[in-house]
């Protein structure tokens, strides 16, 4: 199992039966592949679809039906289509239970940076800034460290923020960490890593959940 798959499979456990969920573009979209058949889950796409289905077969591609990542998709039975304003009313109004998003950096107070690297081309934030405030729960999935091996979980984000104090939980290839009032709390350590490994690759001091060592 590669890192992306390991992270996506762990993130699936955040999705509860009956949830309305928005999955971000990229790795978060992969989570859909692992959602258990025992859970009834409705995926929201911010371009105006509630009830994303699987990718279409070659013969059933509809150019008018895409997800927010602009991929051709299908709609499940019971799906609905609506405008972008309605879509974000649904998001901003707190009707979406969970958003799973990627990140470049997360800070110990729950600040998130995932849209812009100054000096490089700016692509735009899309719906991320609205989602982080609207969804009932925001779970970040990402690699624990960047390509240089440096922590991505920091005392303070160095990149421009997507939202302040918006992250509830971080799932990485190494650990699961909750953002709490007291600070970051290490709640799970992935196989092959120790609590010490996690602390060494995380800038802020971690609170260690009972039972972890």
């Amino acid at each position: 199992m590669n890192n992306r798959e390991r992270i996506a499979r762990r993130a699936e456990k955040e999705v509860q039966d009956g949830f309305f969920v928005n999955l971000g573009i990229g790795m978060p979209t992969l989570v859909a592949n692992y959602i258990s058949d025992n859970k009834q889950v409705v995926l929201q796409s911010e371009n105006g679809l509630l009830g994303i289905g699987p990718y279409p077969t070659k013969d059933s591609v509809d150019p008018d039906l895409i997800n927010a990542g602009k991929e051709t998709v299908t709609a499940i039975k019971g799906a609905s289509y609506f405008s972008s304003a309605e879509s974000f009313a649904m998001i901003r109004g707190g009707h979406i239970d969970l958003a799973i998003l990627g990140a470049m950096e997360v800070a110990e107070n729950g600040d998130l940076a995932n849209w812009m690297i100054p000096g490089k081309m700016i692509k735009g934030m899309g719906g991320a800034m609205d989602l982080v405030h609207g969804a009932q729960r925001v779970v970040i999935i990402m690699d624990h460290v960047n390509r240089k091996g440096e922590p991505k979980i920091l005392k303070k984000c160095s990149l421009p923020l997507t939202g302040k104090n918006v992250v509830n939980r971080i799932i990485t290839d190494r650990a699961v960490i909750d953002v709490t009032e007291e600070g970051l709390k290490l709640v799970e350590v992935m196989e092959g890593f120790t609590v010490e490994d996690i602390q060494n690759s995380t800038e802020p001091e971690l609170i260690i959940a009972e039972g972890l060592k």
């Binding site: 911010e46 405008s83 972008s84 304003a85 879509s87 974000f88 009313a89 998001i91 901003r92 600040d111 934030m125 899309g126 719906g127 991320a128 800034m129 609205d130 989602l131 405030h133 609207g134 421009p160 923020l161 997507t162 939202g163 302040k164 104090n165």
Partner: peptide
């Protein structure tokens, strides 16, 4: 932000000059 953009256009068409949103605070 996409939700602000869609609402800014909705508001413009609906005669609403402005509205408050959490999207973008602190950014």
């Amino acid at each position: 932000p996409q939700g602000s953009l869609s609402e800014k256009i909705r508001a413009g068409g609906a005669g609403i000059p402005g509205f408050y949103t959490p999207a973008g605070v602190g950014t």
